[in-house]
Design a protein around this nucleic acid. Structure first.
Length: 900
DNA sequence: ATCTATGGCAAGCCGA
DNA sequence: TCGGCTTGCCAT
């Protein structure tokens, strides 16, 4: 079956048609459901038509899961890498959705709305381990035929009915609890069957079987048996289980990037995808197979333009929009992965509604609409906009290289390419201009998944494996959802009750320390007061993944912080009233701790290991950056209300232990005769320490604290002011690290930033204290030049004077104050420009009320030069302070010189 | 629909 | 006029 790689589209549609007919049969007669057994397996496979859901399949990667409402079962999507196609597998194990409750079956029997619920199936009594109280409890599993019966409907689902009706029947004699009722059914299924999304499986006679990859298994043995032999033994199983997910190979993913253009009667307005009133006039499809297609709709009065496209681009003209859409849909049914930039909101959404308007039958449209997302019936839709919008991805995986999440900006930052600038509205372009524009967008979208040896696709696979979520969900959801998912998975695997958030708070309580910042829940990290001045030979030491290390070494988690055992109360967290369990290992501690160890001790070093083939190194680099994303959030989620295992005392304990660790380390450094000139959270800046001193401190941290303290970098010299989180350090090779200085912040005018960069350049050349004196003269000259240019109004472009500040919310929502950028925003709004949260406002400071103006509307004459000079002063003072220079003296000199 | 945390700085607003 | 507060941007 798989040898036949090409399947005709007619055949393909007939399969969908066939299955949808079966769907309607099943949904109208739920009694058709069979009990568990061989017979049923055969049956489902046959029903599915055999080809899309084959009874046998060579190793294929589990990429997605969902619920098929009409069949009433979970389906899995498997990507077979040889044929490069998606195959379906429908559950044939009889698994059913359920919830857990503390109400026993004999009492539930008396709740009529439960037992008479059309989707109610049966009760079971199961035993679960309740980690909050460290005890086993018997709970009732309420099994239903339909996931919507458990939860999801606004009214009348079992998770609401049980607590509502119980007091009506029995009075308030019991504190009714319902657990695990808000887990999506397909996730529940993944957990219960211990499925590993992103990993390879085989199908044999309808059975889904994990595929074992021999080379990877050998590697895993090596990592676990040899490398981590010395680790605390209870972590070994976790190390092995993570290593398996990370070591297994990733497939090459056949995919297509899609971008569409829509006709618009109003030049400035993009048509509403929900209405889809205007025709789709162009679509581009750029495939990983090298195919580049541009589909154009013939319209009256449109110029041809120069149709000289590269030979690998095929231009197709359509006279009927319906045919054009059909061609797009054929592609969506062909490629296993479809990539868009904002396809959830626009491209796929538009196509979905447009198809409806053009009279397509629903079953002939390959797109499925969720609340705010668009999925595909056949393949997997990845919306890169959603992925790049993810803050953790933006910061930790891509180092904040892009700021606004637009195709243009992300492509510029990661690819060095940009969108084609249009000089007229899309609707007025010639065919060739339109084709070029649209094709370029699809090419950029594709390139974002292919650059750097397919980094983004690999990241997605690794995150899919760690989180145990379908690829679609992983690419759209945030890091707290990923962490929640692997935590829930582990609960199920160990037969632990997944606690409700309320119960964790009720049993474990909240925080006890006071935060330094008003409005925060607990006290955070220590920032050491810097010693101002220029310091030569500075070693920066830091604790490797401090908070994850603390979570591992100090056994932190909702289960262990303030546990129920009297005998653990002596195991206190410094400067808090909290204690930590000595009897059990918390799941968070085990899962996050083992991930940390794998990153720090295996993947990070291996990613740099030149003895490995470069392909392997690249893969390891992907893994270590994915782990970085997860680990950096692992402490934060403890303190985030939105996290299901929210546990404020655990977050508080983490930062309290962190404070204790850094404080002890400073004390020890002093005892060793080392001067500590600065430090923040997990780092210490040591002035001119000897090799021996550094080594001694590091060894002490290992022995006394069980923490790895290493030299991160050496600064030839560091310039500190009296301000915290504000410094500059020059590395051995002349690279300048600038942290927190205003001159580097994104919102300041380019004019000032350029001069700041010049000063940075001067400083990067200084090697010795003697050279410093020359550098100071250069810096003075630079500051003076900048000042004179401003004073004499000699800027080249008014845009260079613009402050660029992002609107945190819609302008109208600023009710407490009206900051300057909001004032400018109001001026823009008055001109009829629509503004929303996240838009960047570019404004200059002017002499007349209200003292700001959007740069687009301002002229050079209006600029308030003195305001800019004031800004210049405060920006440069941050460096001049430490160099013993005075801004006023520098510019004062100028005045004297003018007289001479 | 989506959401990891706290600490720190600079600017400007705004009420006492 | 002063100082608390809001806002945005950044460090870790």
């Amino acid at each position: 079956m798989l040898q036949k790689k090409q399947r005709s589209l007619d055949e393909f549609y007939s399969l969908f048609k066939e299955s949808s007919e079966i769907e309607s049969n099943v949904s109208t007669s739920p009694d058709n459901f069979l009990e568990e057994g061989e017979e049923q397996e055969e049956m489902v496979v046959e029903e599915a038509g055999g080809e899309l859901a084959p009874a046998n399949l060579p190793p294929s990667y589990l990429v997605s899961a969902g619920y098929d409402g009409s069949r009433g079962v979970v389906y899995l999507k498997l990507y077979e890498p040889t044929s490069q196609r998606i195959y379906f597998w429908y559950d044939n194990t009889g698994h059913r959705p359920y919830l857990l409750t503390n109400v026993p079956p004999e009492e539930l029997e008396k709740l009529e709305r439960v037992v008479n619920h059309p989707s109610f199936d049966h009760f079971e009594v199961v035993e679960k381990y309740d980690a909050l109280y460290d005890r086993n409890i018997k709970v009732t599993k309420v099994v239903a035929k339909d996931p919507l019966a458990i939860g999801g409907r606004p009214r009348g689902c079992l998770r609401d009915i049980i607590p509502e009706d119980y007091p009506l029947v029995f009075g308030n004699s019991r504190d009714v609890k319902v657990w695990e009722a808000a887990i999506k059914y397909y996730q529940c299924y993944i957990y219960d069957r211990a499925l590993q999304p992103g990993m390879p499986y085989k199908i044999e006679n309808g059975k889904l079987i994990p595929y074992s990859h021999d080379d990877s298994e050998k590697n895993i043995r090596k990592i676990v048996d040899e490398f981590f032999r010395g680790e605390s033994s209870d972590l070994l199983p976790y190390l092995e289980f993570w290593a398996r997910l990370l070591e297994y190979p990733a497939p090459k993913m056949r995919r297509v990037a899609l971008d569409i253009e829509v006709y618009s009667p109003v030049a400035t307005r993009v048509p509403d995808p929900e209405e889809a009133s205007q025709p789709v006039i162009c679509a581009s499809l750029v495939g990983s197979d090298g195919k580049k297609r541009v589909l154009l709709l013939r319209r009256g009065g449109v110029e041809e333009g120069e149709m000289d496209f590269p030979s690998d681009v095929s231009i197709e003209f359509y006279t009927s929009e319906r045919d054009l859409l059909q061609s797009i849909f054929n592609a969506l049914n062909d490629y296993p992965f479809v990539i868009t930039f904002n396809g959830d909101d626009f491209d796929l959404n538009y196509l979905y509604h447009r198809a409806k308007n053009l009279g397509f039958a629903k079953r002939d449209v390959p797109i499925e609409r969720g609340q705010k997302i668009c999925l595909l019936k056949y393949g997997v839709h990845i919306d890169l906009y959603r992925f790049f919008l993810n803050r953790s991805i933006q910061i930790y995986a891509f180092g904040q290289k892009y700021r606004n999440v637009t195709l243009d900006e992300v492509a510029r930052a990661l690819l060095g390419r940009s969108k084609i600038e249009l000089t007229k509205p899309v609707s007025e372009l010639s065919y060739s201009e339109l084709a070029r524009y649209c094709l370029n967008d699809a090419e950029l979208t594709y390139a974002l998944t292919s650059y750097n040896d397919e980094l983004v696709m690999k990241l997605l696979i690794v995150l899919t494996r760690i989180s145990r979520m379908p690829m679609e969900d992983v690419s759209r959801q945030g890091v707290s959802k990923w962490i929640r998912s692997f935590m829930q998975y582990e609960h199920r695997r160990r037969n632990m009750l997944i606690p409700n958030s309320d119960d964790i708070i009720a049993v474990r309580g909240t925080t006890a320390t006071r935060a330094i910042i008003k409005g925060k829940k607990y006290m955070g990290a220590i920032v050491v007061r810097p010693i101002p001045g220029v310091h030569f030979n500075v070693a920066v030491m830091d604790f490797q993944s401090l908070y994850p290390s603390i979570i591992k070494v100090y056994n932190l988690g909702y289960q262990t912080v303030r546990c129920v055992h009297e005998e653990c109360r002596s195991n206190v967290v410094p400067e808090t009233p909290h204690w930590i369990c000595r009897k059990h290992r918390a799941l968070e501690s085990a899962l996050i701790g083992s991930l940390r160890d794998l990153r720090v001790k295996w993947y990070k070093p291996k990613a740099k290991d030149k003895s490995l083939p470069s392909e392997q190194r690249d893969w390891y680099n992907v893994i270590q950056s994915a782990l970085k994303v997860i680990l950096n959030a692992s402490y934060g989620v403890f303190g985030a209300e939105v996290f299901d295992l929210y546990c404020p005392p655990a977050a508080e304990a983490t930062s309290a232990i962190g404070r204790s660790i850094i404080t002890q380390t400073i004390k020890r450094a002093h005892e060793l005769g080392i001067e500590v000139i600065y430090g923040d959270t997990d780092s210490l800046f040591l002035k001119n320490p000897s090799q021996e001193q550094v080594k001694a401190l590091s060894e002490w941290a290992e022995e006394a604290l069980g923490m790895e303290l290493e030299v991160d970098k050496y600064y030839r010299y560091a310039v500190l002011s009296s301000r915290k989180k504000n410094y500059l350090g020059v590395l051995e090779d002349g690279t300048v690290d600038v942290k927190g200085l205003t001159g580097k912040k994104r919102h300041i005018p380019l004019f000032i930033k350029r001069y700041f960069d010049k000063i940075e350049d001067i400083l990067s050349r200084v090697k010795t204290p003697a050279e410093f004196e020359f550098a100071k003269r250069d810096i003075e000259k630079t500051v003076r030049e900048c000042y004179m240019k401003l004073k004499n109004r000699e800027w080249e472009d008014i845009n260079d004077l613009a402050f660029e500040v992002v609107l945190g919310k819609v302008p109208g929502a600023y009710d407490k104050t009206t900051p300057q950028h909001v004032k400018a925003a109001y001026i823009l709004q008055a001109k009829g420009i629509e503004l929303k949260a996240g838009d960047t406002i570019r404004f200059v400071k002017v002499t007349k009320e209200p003292f700001v103006k959007p740069v687009q509307l301002a002229t050079s004459k209006e600029i308030d030069v003195d305001k800019y000079i004031g800004y210049l002063r405060s920006t440069f003072d941050q460096i001049l302070d430490a160099l013993n220079l005075e801004f006023d003296e520098i510019i004062g000199l100028t005045r004297l010189e003018q007289f001479m």
